[in-house]
Design a protein around this nucleic acid. Structure first.
Lengths: 331, 331
DNA sequence: AAGGTTTGTGCAAACGTTTGCTGTGGAAAA
DNA sequence: TTTTCCACAGCAAACGTTTGCACAAACCTT
């Protein structure tokens, strides 16, 4: 037999499908005897409800979507792990949609969310997205949306971020306390708010510390390889005693460049990064960093989303996570 | 108005829902004039088909499931990227289910696949899974399943793997050609077939090379940190001139240990690994490795699965990917 | 013993589509 | 003119559930 349905069970037991449905859902209206007969047969036939039909009838999908720019090995895996755990623990399924950092793909993904009637959406924006208009189809339908990590300031939904300026200040101050005054800065995609904010923080704190900001000591790079090249260039053309890397990817690039020049960390050049905490362990000495936990981000984003779905959260909440300085090596 | 349906459009245009459906699907039976009227109104109302209803009616879900043991930063991201791309390009949605390496969770995930009526399943087994019985509910319903990476030898579905013995031979031979005869071996979870095969290959090739196998030169570790500890122990207690690491994770662990002992690569100790190719770039000199491309694995697995779904592939195909030696530093 | 309440079950509609069949009007063919 | 055919649209069933309502039988009240 093909996959058995409620109707099959009803026919075999001379019952009405509705009774079978109630029996399977432990509805109090059905007699214990009938309930048992139904459940036993269901077990025997290996019955599993057709979730498609259930969802259609119940007008929800049990789906939560994760919209993410791309898979990368640094930040994402721990975010995913946290989200998947929370989503699973609450009986939802997670579907993952990538935008590859393009706006068009992000728009498509929003459409897909609508079509699948997802009940909530977690978003880390594509770098091309400079405005949130393309989320209107979801927001109009009151589909809960939570933005995390890569967000835009003007969003009216919940969000999970960190205080980029403060975190950068923390990093640079730590370098300054250790006597560094010529600090190279490695930054990511300048289209991202996180990049712009961290860059702004970088300039601000230098000013506070009475260090003049020199553009030639900074660089923007899209990936670790490019980061490595730009770090190399800075080291060759400028005189710096430390690097600040705004992400794991750029930290790796910087270390690569430093090792290529056969400089010792931290004696000849120091490095500090904003990091999820895993990659800094790869090296010896381990890299001092400000811990920006992807797991925490994911867990908080999921928690907010579930709160909004359950209507426990009515108004947008903007969570800013605390970030701690993790001293693993001297700088 | 709430999300508009086909029936809404039909009512507004004084048409039958079936005509609207056909118009939207460009069915030839509907006049160009009607088609235009329908499509214009649909556009105006922002109509998007309810995929739940479509799927129920069409008796398929448009879903492909990815069952994976856990998120880790090394192998998985590139596998995911490849799979997501292929799945998306073919109009399916990807849902991701983690087992956390437990059998019970993997069983649950199989049930979820059934309930959601997924049309295909890609599986990298949990380490606890020593038998494939729990996939019977899917296989009985003729749901296409493709196993990749972490597989069991007795599977009767398609699979994508590498020749673990051959690849290990390649690595060790390369070390031997460079004069290494005392080689430490770092291996992963011994419950996994890949681990056992690579370990077997390790022993076999040593024999072929007339090097006696010494158990104390090898270790099994679950993660990079444990790998690092065990590598340290081997270096301290034994006299070796090179390490073989069977995965990126263990390579990182080994390098960590080597750097901790302040040994130079490759002058004082060499290292070779089986790797996706990304992490070896972190270091300087870069790590020579056998390239086991996660992207290739994902792409091939997805291609096989789509082939089976489209019924282009009838009989189980077992793909064994070629792996190339990538010499980045001398060993 | 008549009325009221409870208990268990069935009926049918609904969720939003798709699709085989039927039916109509008009054009083309005889 | 009559027949044949075709283009177009509607009807209704189906996908597998859930659920409000109706209803019968059995059980309590007075």
């Amino acid at each position: 037999m093909n996959r058995p349905t409620i109707t099959d069970i009803a026919r075999l037991l001379q019952l009405n499908p509705s009774t079978v449905s109630r029996a399977l859902n432990n509805h109090p209206d059905v007699s214990p005897e009938t309930r048992n007969r139904v459940q036993e047969l269901a077990q025997e036939l290996g019955y599993a409800p057709n979730q498609l039909a259930v969802n259609l009838r119940r007008r929800h999908s049990g789906l939560i979507a994760l919209l993410v720019s791309e898979m990368n090995m640094f930040f994402n895996p721990s975010v995913f792990r946290a989200i998947e755990q929370a989503v699973y623990a609450n009986g939802y399924q997670l579907i993952i949609l990538q935008s590859n950092n393009t706006l068009s793909r992000e728009q498509q993904n929003v459409q897909i969310c609508r079509q699948l009637a997802v009940e909530g959406v977690l978003v880390s924006l594509a770098s091309e997205a400079q405005v949130l208009a393309h989320f209107a189809p979801l927001l109009d339908q009151k589909v809960p949306v939570v933005f995390f990590d890569r967000v835009l300031p003007q969003n009216h939904s919940c969000s999970v971020t960190i205080d980029d300026v403060a975190i950068t200040r923390q990093a640079i101050q730590h370098l300054a306390e250790n006597g560094h005054r010529r600090i190279g800065g490695l930054f990511g995609d300048p289209n991202l708010t996180i990049t712009r904010e961290r860059f702004r923080g970088f300039k601000e704190v230098l000013q506070e510390l009475d260090i003049s900001f020199e553009e030639q000591l900074t660089a923007f790079a899209q990936d670790s390889q490019q980061g490595s090249q730009k770090a190399l260039k800075i080291m060759e053309e400028q005189n710096i005693s430390a690097f600040f890397a705004m992400s794991d990817e750029l930290m790796v690039g910087a270390v690569q460049a430093i090792e290529q020049k056969r400089l010792r960390i931290p004696e000849e050049i120091a490095i500090i990064a904003i990091s999820d905490g895993f990659a800094p362990e790869f090296y010896n000495p381990k890299i001092t960093h400000i811990r920006h936990s992807g797991y925490e981000v994911g867990a908080n984003a999921a928690k907010l989303l579930l709160g909004v779905i359950r209507e426990e959260i009515k108004d947008p909440i903007h969570v800013q996570l605390e970030c701690k300085l993790i001293e693993l090596g001297s700088v």
